[in-house]
Design a protein around this nucleic acid. Structure first.
Lengths: 250, 250
DNA sequence: TCGAGAAATACTCAAACCGAGAAATACTCG
DNA sequence: CGAGTATTTCTCGGTTTGAGTATTTCTCGA
């Protein structure tokens, strides 16, 4: 037996290693009533019983990570896994040794965006689930979920700048004003309507016109708006930059 | 016993779950002789014996993910973990069920950048390790490491745009031309020297002057260049955009 | 030692872009 | 019908950008 083989055998005997678990946790954002909401579940059992947490769970034996994230989301929201308008991306992995008191747990966090998702299906998992406005979110979440959520929000905010992510928050057809509302909601600051309009139409592949307009004007007046659908661009160039970034830096 | 408690007990007994392992793999880039190099190791044992792979290994029982990545890198290169000029960031987690034939292995990939790292310390791990020019890299790597490497390269390329990452590839003090060489090497295309110079100096916090100049002019002539060191900016604003992005998109 | 070539840096100029404001128009609601 | 509001377009001045050029200061080889 060569030295390498011996190394291999000891290195890779599963039982030679302490038990670890891998979970997925999902930071799911949607916009309801003009406010950014995140999906939270109330923990039904210890540890941290009754605390709010991100939806998540163990990765199945034959399950892909992204599939597991989609499944967890579907279990809470009933959103079809094949939903065309759902965006899922990996956010990062959190594996501090003490993040879960029971055992070594690595959590692969996913970020999900979707338009106006349905109310959570409580009871499917014996857990209470709810869309919670980000402004009213509990300061403390179970485990390190507050950190994960903060990272997810930051990712979402910057992804709006250079990707067509905002189109995932609106319906199949949308107006420029609806798109602007997404940016204003996630960025938390008002944008110049005229400049936003010009900018969106000037970015190649961001949106394409459907030719149609809304049936009615705005609820408080105004003309009927033209309708657009998402274009085929994967990266916005030039990007739409957050106005507040400029001062925040350095 | 409530339903929740029962759920908890069955859900969290470690032995109730099939064995999984978590590893870290490191995509380490450096620039040598004007070319981008990646650190690869030749596998010393099965599976995929003798194939090139990314350096990596299991995460220790009490070890943080980032710590494990730094350790793996140090084991191959002898680079001090506390090296100030080393940049380490999480790239993503790869967990396809069949990516490792032995058992379920989740690999958390890290991206590392450093200036002119020393030659790898072969023998420390009974493995051959080498800095391989990206242009000469083997088409096939062990497991899904080719995918991870491709993702790492793409991340590096775009991070140059909006972060001061390039300063991690050069020494403590550097000239604008050296910085430009980093961009040209990673992006693989020549840049306009005058515009690059103007742009770098105009981005607040990117670089700061040391007041000094190089001892000698360039090897093939030219005046002595002013020296700079990295500034305190974490995000470049405005960003330096890859010229080729414009056409590549869509 | 001198002249060619090269590189660092500064400058020019037109085109593109951006923020701010305002105008024109078309709706809703009372 | 009139007030108010929202969509869309336009204008204007300042800034940024890409492309090219100029200046200066080096190295190197003839």
């Amino acid at each position: 037996m060569t030295n390498d083989d011996a190394d291999f055998l000891t290195s890779y005997d599963p039982r030679a290693y302490p038990p670890v678990a891998v979970t997925v946790d999902v930071v799911a954002f949607t916009i309801r009533d003009g406010a950014l909401h995140v999906l939270l579940v109330r923990r039904g059992g210890p540890p941290m019983k009754d605390m709010w947490a991100l939806p998540g769970g163990f990765v199945g034996e034959w399950e892909d990570l992204a599939t597991a994230a989609a499944r967890e989301l579907a279990e809470e929201t009933g959103v079809a896994t094949a939903n065309r308008r759902l965006h899922l991306e990996q956010l990062g992995t959190y594996g501090a040794p003490e993040r879960d008191p029971r055992m070594r747990v690595f959590s692969v966090a996913y970020l999900a965006f979707a338009p106006q998702l349905p109310d959570p299906v409580s009871g499917s998992d014996a857990r209470e689930a709810a869309w919670v406005p980000m402004d009213d979110r509990p300061a403390a979440l179970a485990f390190d979920h507050a950190t994960i959520l903060a990272d997810g929000l930051e990712r979402a905010r910057s992804k709006l700048e250079y990707s067509p992510l905002a189109t995932k928050f609106v319906g199949e057809e949308f107006t420029i004003a609806e798109l602007r509302a997404v940016y204003e909601t996630v960025w938390g600051e008002p944008l110049h309507a005229g400049n936003f309009h010009r900018k969106v139409l000037s970015v190649p592949g961001f949106v394409e016109s459907t030719g149609a307009t809304t049936e009615r004007g705005g609820a408080r007046g105004g003309p009927r708006a033209k309708l657009y659908r998402a274009g085929d661009a994967q990266l916005l160039h030039p990007a739409l930059l957050m106005p507040s970034r400029e001062e925040t830096l350095r």
